Computed example of a mutant assay.
Amino acid sequence: MPIDAAKAVASEPRSTSIAWDHKDIQLYHLGLGAGIPATDPDELRYTLESKLHVLPSFATVAGGGMAAAGGLSAPGIDVNLAHVLHGGQKVTLHRPIPAQGKAVQTSTIPAVYDKGKAAVIVMRSDVADDEGPLWTCDTQIFVRGEGGFGGDRGPSTRSELPERAPDRTALRPVREELALLYRLSGDWNPLHADPEFAKLAGFDKPILHGLCTYGITLKAVVDTVLGGDVSRVKSYGTRFAGIVFPGETLRIRMWETEGQVQVSVTAVEREDAPVLADTVVEFS
């Protein structure tokens, strides 16, 4: 069987060194659409090295963002990449990410869930530098056709939105070239750039990276709810519910409660088709 869940979970942790500097941070922020207006003091926190802070979702691309790819080569995992979808993502911060750093990333597979017609592989990356833990990334990979092996279905991650109007709504246009810029942070999948490849995958044109939408959404929450203070973010998780085409507009609805923001993200031009769901930002 392509997936041996017990072997995957029991496999030895895999460690690798990663490094980043201000250029990586600035490129990542620009790939999320930061820097407009270019001289806005609030935007300069994302684009100017002398004022730079780090959006916590940078954890998904630090060191080239290859944690998930490494997990798919772990013992017990042998899947057809054409059947693989990014199902969900969570970043837990242990302290603010520095604008320059060197760290060790340790990757494990804490669980493989059996969803019947599909399997969900949970990949965890713990990152620490000389001063201690920095962040933990949990990535859920959905593999079609690999379920039915009699394993645990896993916990439900669905969260109900409040039955009231959102406290805040932000519209974020996705510029036509944004996917081309975002992919320079490490995700070179031609699905996000090559029209012919996108058609082979069943899309009319290239689609935006899910993790780009993920970063755009966190930036909107930080800027509108948290006063631009990235250090207040404790964790950020989402489920990828749909696609975004460059040129579309994201409608980001936010409901605030004590210590967290629940978020819904939809594509305006496609009758508010769901993009991100079960999305929660926990903050201090």
Rank of each mutant, 00 (worst) to 15 (best):
7 K>Y: 05
8 A>W: 09
8 A>C: 13
8 A>Q: 11
9 V>A: 01
12 E>N: 10
13 P>C: 11
14 R>E: 12
16 T>D: 01
20 W>Y: 06
22 H>Q: 15
28 Y>A: 08
30 L>I: 14
40 D>H: 08
42 D>P: 03
42 D>N: 14
61 V>S: 02
64 G>F: 03
65 G>Y: 07
74 A>K: 07
79 V>R: 00
93 L>S: 09
101 G>F: 05
102 K>S: 15
108 T>S: 14
109 I>T: 14
112 V>L: 10
113 Y>C: 03
117 K>F: 02
122 V>N: 03
130 D>G: 15
133 P>S: 10
133 P>K: 12
136 T>L: 00
149 F>S: 07
151 G>H: 05
153 R>Y: 00
156 S>W: 04
156 S>L: 06
166 P>Q: 05
168 R>G: 06
170 A>R: 04
171 L>H: 10
173 P>T: 09
177 E>G: 01
178 L>A: 01
179 A>R: 01
179 A>S: 13
197 F>R: 14
203 F>L: 15
207 I>P: 04
212 C>M: 14
214 Y>I: 08
235 S>C: 01
236 Y>S: 02
240 F>P: 02
245 F>K: 05
251 R>H: 09
251 R>E: 09
252 I>C: 00
259 G>E: 01
263 V>H: 03
270 R>S: 10
279 T>C: 13
284 S>F: 01
